[in-house]
Design a protein around this nucleic acid. Structure first.
Length: 214
DNA sequence: AATTCCTGCAACCGCATGCGT
DNA sequence: GACGCATGCGGTTGCAGGAAT
C-alpha cells in the first residue's frame, strides 16, 4: 500500500517532490554494479527488510525492485535454461489445478521463478491455447456457413431432413464446438532446443560471472 | 542493407495480505 | 479495531533482439 509511495514517483502524499524522488529512485534494467552490490550485501546481511536493504546497500532502488531482482535473477539456486518437457507438463497440470497461482506453482518447481513460469505460460502455452480456440471458432463458422448453404439450397426440404444423417452429423459437430475449450497439447516445438532462451545472454554479464566475481 | 514486425523476457505497477503498534 | 508499513502476488508494459519482407 504505502509501499506504492516508495515505488511511485508521483505520490501526492510523499514529502518529496516528484523531481527530487525521480532523482533518487532508479528504474529500468539493473547494471552489473548494482547486481554485485546487492549480491554482496545479501551474502553478508541476508535477505529481508528490503527497503532498509536497498538504503543500507546504497542502491538507488526501491525495496521491491531489489527483492524482485534477487528472487528472479540473482539467487544462486535459480535454474537457467530451457523449460524441460517434464517441467512443461507440470506447469500445465498445476495451472489447470490451481489457476494462475504462479508463486504456488513455482514452489513445486525448485529453481524456477513465478515470473519465469508466468512468462512461459503466457508466451508459449496460452498463446497456443488461444490459437486452438480461434481454430475451433473458425471451424465452427465454416461449419455454420456450410450449414447455411445447405439450408439455402434445401430451403424446402430442410424441415424434412431434420433427422438425416447429414444433419445429425452437423449438429453433433456443433455440440462439440460448444463444449468448453479442452486443453490440446500443442505441437511441441517447445521441446526443441530454444536458442532464444539462453536467458542470461540477454545481459552482457551472466549470473555465473557475477557469482564468480563475488 | 534497411525497415517493419514479432517474440520473449525483465521489470514495473497496483492491489492484497500479514504483522506490529 | 484502526492504522501504517513491509512484503507477496498477478497482471501488464517496455524494450532488445531476431525473423520476415
Amino acid at each position: 500500500m504505502d509501499n506504492k509511495k516508495a515505488c511511485s514517483s508521483n505520490s501526492s502524499s510523499s514529502s518529496r517532490t516528484q523531481k527530487q524522488e525521480s532523482e533518487v529512485i532508479r528504474k529500468g534494467p539493473w547494471t552489473m554494479e548494482e547486481d554485485l552490490i546487492l549480491m554482496n550485501y545479501i551474502s553478508i546481511h541476508g535477505e529481508g527488510v528490503w527497503n532498509n536493504l536497498a538504503q543500507s546497500a546504497g542502491l538507488k532502488r526501491t525495496g521491491k525492485s531489489c527483492r524482485l531482482r534477487w528472487l528472479n535473477y540473482l539467487r544462486p539456486d535459480i535454474r537457467r535454461g530451457n523449460i524441460t518437457p517434464e517441467e512443461k507438463l507440470l506447469i500445465i497440470d498445476l495451472q489447470a489445478r490451481w489457476g494462475n497461482r504462479w508463486s504456488k506453482i513455482a514452489r513445486q518447481m525448485p529453481g524456477r521463478t513465478d515470473n519465469e513460469i508466468k512468462n512461459y505460460w503466457r508466451t508459449r502455452i496460452q498463446k497456443k491455447e488461444a490459437a486452438v480456440v480461434v481454430l475451433k471458432q473458425s471451424e465452427e463458422i465454416s461449419i455454420r456457413e456450410e450449414y447455411d448453404c445447405y439450408d439455402d439450397n434445401n430451403n424446402n426440404n430442410i424441415k424434412y431432413d431434420q433427422n438425416s444423417s447429414m444433419m445429425q452429423m452437423t449438429e453433433m459437430s456443433m455440440d462439440q464446438k460448444s463444449l468448453p475449450p479442452v486443453y490440446i497439447s500443442p505441437v511441441d516445438d517447445d521441446f526443441l532446443p530454444d536458442p532464444s532462451s539462453a536467458q542470461s545472454s540477454d545481459c552482457l554479464w551472466g549470473v555465473d560471472d557475477l557469482w564468480s566475481m563475488h
